[in-house]
Amino acid sequence: MKMAVISEHLGLSWAELARELQFSVEDINRIRVENPNSLLEQSVALLNLWVIREGQNANMENLYTALQSIDRGEIVNMLE
């Protein structure tokens, strides 16, 4: 549920979040190519990849820290 809210509000910031979460330029470009027409779909794809990559370590605290690092703390505030 929280992931959906984050995806809805990320907009163009999804790529900046991807870099903050240590995704490569290739990963970011692949997300763009696979989801060409929708920032929402790109955001969802990023968060899904992050959960798959991090497994047990994919917790909201880590995601909140990354969001705050890219000056998107207002998204965190909405969810708390």
Rank of each mutant, 00 (worst) to 15 (best):
N29T: 13
N59W: 06
Q22E: 12
Q68G: 10
E80Y: 12
L17S: 01
E74C: 05
E74M: 00
S13P: 01
A58I: 13
S38Q: 03
H9R: 06
N48F: 01
L40G: 07
N77L: 12
L67S: 01
A66T: 02
L21I: 05
A4W: 05
L79I: 13
D27K: 04
M78P: 03
N37S: 12
S24I: 04
I31S: 00
Q56H: 08
L21S: 03
R72N: 05
N35H: 14
S7R: 04
V44Y: 14
A66Y: 04
L67V: 02
Y64A: 04
S7L: 02
A18P: 00
L17A: 03
N48L: 01
V44T: 15
V76E: 06
N59Y: 11
N35E: 14
Q22M: 13
L49I: 12
R72M: 06
A66I: 04
S38I: 01
W14M: 05
N29Q: 12
A4V: 06
L79S: 13
K2F: 08
N29L: 10
V25C: 09
V33T: 15
S43D: 04
Q42P: 00
N62K: 14
V76A: 05
G55F: 02
V76H: 05
F23Q: 01
K2H: 07
L49D: 09
E34R: 08
I28L: 04
E34S: 10
E41S: 13
M60D: 08
L40E: 13
R19D: 07
G73F: 07
E26A: 09
V25I: 10
E80D: 15
I6T: 14
I70Y: 10
E54L: 04
F23V: 10
V76L: 12
L63S: 03
Q56M: 12
S69I: 12
R32P: 01
S43F: 00
S38N: 09
N59F: 06
L49C: 11
D71L: 02
A45Q: 10
L67H: 00
V76M: 07
E8G: 07
E16T: 08
S69L: 09
W14S: 01
H9P: 03
M78F: 10
D27V: 11
P36F: 03
V44E: 12
G73L: 05
E61V: 04
M3K: 10
N48I: 00
S69Y: 10
H9M: 07
N35F: 08
G73S: 09
D27F: 05
A58H: 08
E16W: 03
I75A: 00
E41Y: 07
W14D: 01
Q68T: 08
R32G: 08
S24T: 09
E41R: 14
G55A: 08
R32Y: 05
P36K: 07
I70D: 01
N77K: 14
R30D: 10
R32V: 12
S13Y: 04
K2A: 09
Q42R: 10
S38H: 06
N35K: 12
R72P: 08
L10P: 02
S24H: 05
Q42A: 07
E20I: 10
E34Y: 04
S43H: 04
E74P: 07
L10D: 02
Q22L: 10
Q68N: 13
A4R: 11
